[in-house]
Design a protein around this nucleic acid. Structure first.
Length: 452
DNA sequence: TCTGGGGTCCTGCTACGA
DNA sequence: TCTGTCGTAGCAGGACCC
């Protein structure tokens, strides 16, 4: 980026801005009686997980992604909050506009953090350290929230620096962090080497276990392992990447306009479901939600993937690609239902998910299919396709016909909802005793409530 | 009675056409 | 016509991120 911008050989300056305990901090901001208390945001039911918690809760060992039941055992006197997702989204938009005031090169990571490439902004805003200090101050002033900022010459170093700038929670209390940590040019390896390998982006529990078997615990240990060994053990892409990270090399650029590659919707149920009719109804609502999301983003997709998690937590996916992209609930539902039909559900279903990938711009001209009847062949080239493949190809054709026949109706429904509200119109399957129930993102999407 | 929901990326495998 | 090779696409599963 620096070179492209005519900045010569100036080292890149990357900032990583990370809000402190974001969801929990927003809850405390909105309810001052929570100040100084352990607050845990997440699913409050038996199958919920922790999405975020204040440092007062972290002092008891609570952390995000932990089952709520475990968090309750560790910190029974905490305040458990279901959360307000749309509020977090609104604060996140405010945060983003503050970041964009510094540079257009902002790459958001989730709602609460972002990378900024400020290599070209130093002439206007001052040294990276000053930009980081100013940003922290402005976010505190405008949002009344605190963040930590890391500065480095790469994303990895900036990210780890922001982590080093965070407050620390222990049983003795909460110790404030530095707020900003700058890793100067040339100090990267000295900063990285003592860190545990789990600190590196891309090394999760499975990879850390594998590395531990090689006697690798710190980044310095990792740097001593030949790259060929890592490639053999973890594959070409991951092996080469973690070898480079251990050497302090991370060429990834800050990318300001990432496009979504898939859109999905999934739900864990309060109790395992066995009835196909019930699962089919849930699937229909997911197709509605995904279709609305696609059309709202002017996207359409070709590959529909169904995800099923059984009571014993085993998970499988089934996917089918269509010759033409779709965006109507009717077409998505037809493919999803056919995939669901191909799965034995006797074990009971804990989670059902539907997603669509192979996305393209809906405004682009779409290739129409000339072949709506089944004339395809099977793997062996025989004109008589085998059962499952044949059924999916049939449903692919049906989805195309549904897409064509529902396109105008769907556009009309979207227009009505835009003018008269989301609940104003819907298919019969979406009507219950409370009226039309158009699915939308839940305010607390971290597990089912216990009565569901 | 531990394990959500939004995603991305990679690997291994199979099928298939050139 | 048959066989082997190669590149690509689709699919399933897994690891990882917030």
């Amino acid at each position: 980026v620096g070179r492209d911008a005519g900045l010569g050989d100036r080292a890149p300056a990357i900032l990583h801005v990370d809000m402190d305990a974001f969801f929990a901090a927003v809850e405390v901001l909105d309810d001052p009686t929570l100040v100084g208390r352990p607050v845990i945001v997440g699913g409050t039911g038996r199958r919920g997980v922790v999405a975020s918690c204040t440092y007062e809760a972290r002092a008891y060992g609570v952390h995000s992604a932990m089952p709520t039941a475990q968090a309750r055992r560790l910190c029974p006197h905490a305040v458990f909050v279901g959360g307000h997702f749309s509020r977090y989204e609104a604060v996140s938009r405010q945060l983003r506009s503050e970041l964009l005031a510094v540079t257009p090169l902002v790459e958001p990571v989730g709602l609460d953090e972002a990378f900024l490439d400020v290599t070209g902004a130093v002439q206007l805003h001052g040294a990276p350290r000053r930009i980081a200090d100013d940003l922290r101050e402005r976010i505190q002033d405008r949002l009344s929230l605190t963040c930590s900022v890391g500065v480095g010459t790469s994303k990895t170093v900036a990210k780890l620096a922001s982590r080093a700038a965070k407050p620390v929670a222990s049983r003795d209390g909460v110790r404030p962090g530095a707020g900003v940590v700058v890793v100067e040019v040339g100090d990267e390896l000295a900063f990285l080497r003592p860190l545990p390998i789990r600190a590196l982006w891309g090394i999760g529990p499975a990879t850390a276990d594998g590395l531990a078997r090689l006697g690798v615990r710190t980044v310095a240990d990792l740097a001593a392992v030949p790259e060929a060994t890592l490639v053999r053990r973890f594959g070409q892409a991951q092996g080469a990447t973690i070898a480079a990270l251990a050497r302090g090399e991370d060429p990834r650029a800050v990318i300001a306009d990432r496009r979504a590659k898939s859109v999905g919707n999934e739900e864990t149920f309060g109790r395992d479901l066995f009835e196909r009719a019930e699962l089919g109804a849930r699937l229909g609502r997911m197709a509605e939600a995904i279709g609305a999301h696609l059309r709202g983003s002017r996207l359409c997709g070709r590959t529909v993937t169904l995800k099923v998690r059984f009571g014993d937590f085993t998970t499988l996916t089934r996917a089918h690609s269509l010759p033409v992209p779709i965006d109507t609930a009717a077409a998505l539902n037809a493919v999803g239902a056919a995939l669901l039909d191909s799965i034995d559900l006797d074990q009971g279903v804990r989670l059902l998910g539907l997603s669509v990938s192979g996305l393209s711009d809906a405004a682009l001209p779409r290739q129409q299919s000339f072949d709506l009847e089944s004339t395809s062949t099977n793997a062996a080239g025989s004109p008589e396709p085998d059962g499952q493949r044949h059924r999916l190809e049939e449903v692919g054709h049906r989805a195309q016909r549904l897409q064509a026949s529902w396109e105008d109706v769907t556009a009309a429904v979207d227009a009505i909802r835009l003018r008269f509200g989301r609940q104003s119109v819907g298919t019969a399957a979406m009507v219950d005793a409370r009226g039309v129930q158009v699915p939308q993102r839940r305010e607390s999407p971290w597990g089912p409530a216990d009565d569901r």
